[in-house]
């Protein structure tokens, strides 16, 4: 009897062990999104796209499905981050765990040292560690380019900015936008409002309406899902326009393509994809990776505007709003100025 039990236990332990050695496993990706969640048609969706694209490549390589490679969660609030980070890391199933959003930094600083062999990526904030790659972006560059568009196209000489929270990350956007608008049009005034939440489009629309009524005719949104409300508010009146963030939002929110003049670009998808592919290729390293026009990469920010791909910074948009040629020319001047250092943006 005793021996029989021992045999069964040995079989239970050994069979999965042998099985896992026998088949080359596809490396799995764990993705923890920011609290804005999927469906923001901006930052989170773009991050997801990057991970999804990488997963598709891996899946094709190993002959499995994307679902086998990519697992993701949408935490509802920041208190859930640490629990999810632990769950992913402790399962030991994931070759790399990608944490989206600045607010994951505090829990990651606790979790990452406990799993020294686990590779982590954090987007939008720096966490120092031998197993963490921090991906940051010169957000103020995309905001500056959006400011140029707003400054040139405003008819009231008043433009608006709607941020998610009054934190250095978003203040960087606001400063870039303000400087861009005033670089293109010294007479312009910029109104600034902060929603205080990343996933509240209703409040986002409320604040946008207030700015429109105060005379702003173009509002730039950098508030995650919340600034979808800016687009909705812009629909309510002729002559009210909006600018999108991080992706061509005229394409991701096509129902608002008639009010979204242009969108700042932050290629967080490329950044996430490249981190994952580095892991696959065995070249992954910890450290800080900074994307933007004025960084080692020389890409990562830009603007989607007009109907032509001009260069790597100025690409075409699905927007239905007519953009005059001189705006595009001014944008080229601005992008070149940022790249060669003649335009210095204070973030």
């Amino acid at each position: 009897m005793k021996r029989w039990v021992a045999v069964v236990i040995a079989a239970l332990v050994l069979v999965p062990l042998v099985a896992s050695v026998g088949v080359a496993q596809a490396p799995k990706i764990g993705l923890i999104l920011a609290t804005g969640g999927l469906g923001d048609r901006s930052f989170n969706d773009q991050s997801f796209k990057g991970a999804d694209d990488a997963a598709a490549v891996i899946a094709a390589q190993y002959g499995v499905t994307v679902e086998d490679v990519l697992d993701y969660v949408e935490p509802a609030d920041i208190a859930e981050y640490e629990g999810f980070q632990l769950q992913f890391a402790d399962s030991g199933e994931y070759a790399i765990i990608v944490c989206i959003g600045f607010d994951q930094a505090a829990p990651l600083e606790i979790v990452a040292p406990q799993y020294p062999d686990q590779k982590f990526v954090i987007v939008d904030m720096v966490v120092i560690g031998d197993n963490v790659a921090s991906v940051v972006t010169n957000d103020w560059e995309e905001a500056f380019l959006c400011g140029v568009v707003a400054g040139m196209m405003t008819e009231t000489n008043v433009v608006g900015f709607e941020g998610g929270m009054e934190i250095p990350l978003i203040i960087g956007f606001m400063n870039g936008y303000t400087q861009g608008a005033q670089w293109a049009n010294p007479d312009v005034d910029v109104l600034v409002r902060y929603v205080g939440e990343w996933a509240n489009p209703t409040l986002g629309a409320e604040l946008a309406r207030e700015m429109y009524n105060a005379g702003a005719d173009i509002i730039y949104g950098a508030a995650g899902k919340s600034h979808l409300g800016v687009f909705a508010a812009a629909e309510e009146n002729d002559g009210w326009y909006a600018l999108g963030t991080d992706v061509d939002q005229a394409a991701t929110a096509p129902e608002h393509a008639d009010v979204i003049i242009a969108s700042g670009l932050k290629r967080v998808d490329l950044a996430v994809e490249s981190e994952i592919m580095k892991m696959v290729n065995g070249t992954w390293a910890a450290g800080i990776f900074s994307y933007g026009i004025l960084t080692d990469f020389g890409f990562g920010t830009g603007i989607a505007v007009g109907n032509l791909d001009v260069n790597q910074y100025i690409t075409k948009s699905e927007s239905e709003v007519e953009v005059p040629c001189e705006v595009i020319l001014k944008l080229i001047e601005a992008a070149n100025g940022i790249a060669d250092g003649t335009i210095v943006i204070e973030p």
Binding site: M165, E166, P168
Partner: peptide, 16 residues
């Protein structure tokens, strides 16, 4: 704990 609130932690930007 919101930004500008008296107990906001400036280091991590998050509402904490």
């Amino acid at each position: 704990v919101a930004p500008r609130g008296p107990l906001h932690d400036d280091k991590y930007w998050a509402n904490q």
